[in-house]
Design a protein around this nucleic acid. Structure first.
Lengths: 351, 351
DNA sequence: TTGTAGGCGTTATCAG
DNA sequence: CTGATAACGCCTACAA
C-alpha cells in the first residue's frame, strides 16, 4: 500500500495525495475529503524511510548516556524523551558505558544513522584532556550536539548544566561556618564536572583559611558497598565530621559506613549527596543532597537543540544554580543557613 | 558524498561499490582495495534512509515502557538496549505513561516509523479486559511484539516473564509456615501480573486453611510516602506482622511506616518487596525482596525477538521462576526456609 | 486546483 | 568479475 495505490483509488495524482498528507498547497475540500476517506479506510501510512530519504531527516535525536539504569541518568532520559517527543522527535537510545573508544564508535554510528542531533547526558562525557573530546567536536561539525551536565566549547556544541563549582563551594562553606571542622569530599572521577566540584570544595576550604591538612578529598571509584568499605579503611587514618560526595549513591555508601561504624548521623557525621535522586529518599535518615536541577537542564537542552535544528540563533550554554536540599543527614544548623539562598536559576535561556 | 561519487573516483560502477560495502558478490581484491581506500579517505558513509528504503528496514526496535525513570524499568531498558545493539539493532525509546489511549497512539506511531519489532516492558501493558489489549494484537499483525513481564496470547506475540503467581504463593506460604499470622499484601494495580500475584497470595493463605478474615490485601496506588500514609491509616483498623508488596518502592514505604510507628523490623513486622531493584539496597535494614530475574527476562525477550525477525520458529513464551532474596527486613527463619528452593529457571528457551 | 516528472541514495537483478 | 538499470516510495518544482 503506497501513495500510488491511494491516488489510483481516489482518481487523482500522487501529488494531490501528498498535499493532503502534508497539509501543503491548496486542495479542494471535495478531493481532500475523498482522499482522507480512502486513507482512513485502507489504513495507509506513508513510508517513513522514503520520506526520510526525500527530506533527509526522520526527526530522530540520539541520546547517549553511560548507563541508563543509573537512577540519575534514567530520570534524565525520561525527561528528554518526553520533551523531544512533544517536539515531534523520536529518541534513539544508546548506552555507551565509560570507555572512550566505545563512545566514539557509537557517536559515529548514530551520525551514520542520520539522526538530526545528539544529546550526551552526564558530566563524564567531557574529559580532562582536550584531545579526548575531539570526537565530540567532530560530531558537532555534522549535527548539533547538546551536553547535559557537561561543558565543552565549540561550534554547534550546546550545553545545559548546573554550576557544580558554586554548589560545592556553597555546601563546604556552609558546613565550615556551621561548626564542622573535618571535611571530606569523596568523588568518583575527574571529568570536567568532577574537577569543577573538587575545585569548589577546595577553594571553599582555602577561602576560609584552612590549610591543606585540615580538609581532605579522595577518589573512590565506587558503588554503595565499595564506598562504605573505602571509608572504613580511610577512617583508620583520619576521621571526619562531614562527608560531601559527588553523587547520591556514594552518599548512601557513606551512610552505611556510619551505621557500621556506630556513628550517629548527622550528630557525629554529616553526609551530603549530589543529584537529588530517588535513592536518597529510601534511606533513613533521608539523604541531604544537592539538587542540580535536572529537569531544568533537560528542558533547556531540548530547547537549545530544537532551536538549533530550526537554524535559530541560540546561546551556547545554559547554566543553572544548584540548590542545597537539607534532609535528615545534615543537622538543623546546616539547614537553616540556607534560608538566604533563594536565587534560583541564573541561566540566560530559561524554558 | 554518495555512492556515485565513490564509484566515479574509483572508476567503477555503483554496483561494485555497493558490493564491497555489503560484502556481497565477488569483487577482485584489487578493485576492493581501491574502493575501500577511497571510502576511508573520503569518510563516506552510506545513507541510512536510502538503505532503509531499499531493504525496508533500518534495524530498529521500539521499546515501550510506562516511565523509564522507574528504577526497575530503567534497568530493563538498559539491558534491552545493550542486548539489541549486540544484535545490530537500534533502540527507539518511547515512554507511554499509563494511559491506554496514549499507549495505543504511540504503538501505532512506532509502527508507522517502520520499526522491525517492539518490546513492551512492564506488566501493566496487559489489561484485565481483553478488548483493551486488542491494540497489541493489532500491532502484532504487522511486526513481532514481545512483552517483558506480561502475558498475552496471540500470533506473533512473544512473552518473557516471571511466574508471579508462584512467587507470591511461595513467599506467603513461607511467612505462614514460619510463624507469621497476620499477612497483608499491598499492590498497586490489577494488571495481568497484578492479578497473578494477588491470586498467588490469596491461594497460599487459603491453601493453609486461613479464612477470609485471617489475611488481607489492599490496593494502594502509591509512592513511598503515599504507601506509608496509607498503612498508617490502615493500622488503626487492623494490624499485621508481615507485609508483602507488589514492588520495592511500596516496600520502602512500608519500612518508613514501620519506623514512624515505632515497629521493629523484622521482629514486629516483616517486609518483603518485589523486583530486586536498587532502591532496596539503600534502606536500612536492606530490603528482602523477590527477584524476578529481570536480566534473564530481557535476554529471553531479545532472543525471542531476534529469532522471530529471522523468521525462525520460536516458542511463544519463556517463563522464569522468581527467587526470594532474604535480606534485612525478614527474620532468619524466613531466610533459612528457602534453602530447599534451588530450582532456578523453568523456561523452555534459556539464553 | 491538479498533474507530470525528476530526484533522493541504495540494493538487486540481469546481462555481459 | 563488472556494469547498466529498474525498483523502493515520497516530495516538490514546474506546467497546465
Amino acid at each position: 500500500m503506497n501513495i500510488y495505490d491511494i491516488s489510483r483509488r481516489a482518481g487523482v495524482s500522487i501529488a494531490t495525495v501528498s498535499r493532503v498528507l502534508n497539509g501543503s498547497g491548496k486542495v479542494s475540500a471535495a478531493t481532500r475529503q475523498k482522499i482522507l476517506a480512502i486513507i482512513e479506510e485502507t489504513g495507509y501510512t506513508p513510508n517513513a524511510f522514503a520520506r526520510g530519504l526525500g527530506l533527509n531527516t526522520m526527526h530522530t535525536v540520539g541520546i547517549l548516556c553511560a548507563d541508563s539504569s543509573d537512577s540519575f541518568l534514567a530520570t534524565a532520559i525520561y525527561l528528554l524523551e518526553q520533551g523531544l517527543r512533544s517536539h515531534g522527535y523520536d529518541s534513539l537510545l544508546c548506552c555507551t558505558g565509560y570507555d572512550h573508544q566505545v563512545r566514539q564508535k557509537y557517536l559515529d554510528l548514530l551520525i551514520s544513522k542520520r539522526v538530526d542531533g545528539v544529546i550526551l547526558v552526564g558530566s563524564n562525557y567531557v574529559e580532562a584532556k582536550p584531545e579526548l573530546n575531539q570526537y565530540i567536536l567532530d560530531a558537532a561539525r555534522e549535527i548539533p550536539v547538546v551536553l547535559v551536565n557537561g561543558y565543552l566549547e565549540g561550534p554547534q556544541v550546546y550545553c545545559a548544566l548546573c554550576d557544580d563549582y558554586e554548589a560545592l563551594h556553597l555546601a563546604a562553606t556552609r558546613f565550615l561556618t556551621q561548626g564542622r571542622k573535618r571535611l571530606l569530599y569523596l568523588y568518583r572521577s575527574l571529568s570536567y564536572s568532577g574537577r569543577r566540584k573538587l575545585a569548589g570544595f577546595t577553594d571553599a576550604c582555602q577561602d576560609l583559611g584552612l590549610s591543606q591538612e585540615q580538609f581532605h578529598s579522595a577518589c573512590c571509584n565506587g558503588s554503595i558497598y565499595e564506598t562504605r568499605d573505602y571509608l572504613k579503611a580511610l577512617w583508620e587514618q583520619r576521621t571526619f565530621d562531614a562527608i560531601l560526595t559527588s553523587d547520591d549513591e556514594m552518599a548512601i555508601g557513606a551512610l552505611k559506613f556510619a551505621r557500621a561504624q556506630g556513628l550517629s548521623v548527622p550528630k557525629d557525621l554529616s553526609i551530603l549527596g549530589y543529584n537529588n535522586s530517588k535513592l536518597g529518599l529510601c534511606c533513613d535518615p533521608e539523604l541531604s543532597t544537592i539538587d542540580n536541577q535536572l529537569a531544568f537542564s533537560c528542558t533547556s537542552a531540548i530547547s537549545l537543540l530544537v532551536k538549533a535544528l530550526a537554524k535559530e540563533l541560540v546561546p551556547a550554554r545554559t547554566i543553572l544554580s544548584a540548590q542545597i536540599l537539607p534532609r535528615g543527614t545534615t543537622d538543623s544548623a546546616f539547614a537553616q543557613a540556607g534560608e538566604t539562598n533563594k536565587e534560583y536559576a541564573k541561566g540566560e535561556c530559561m524554558p
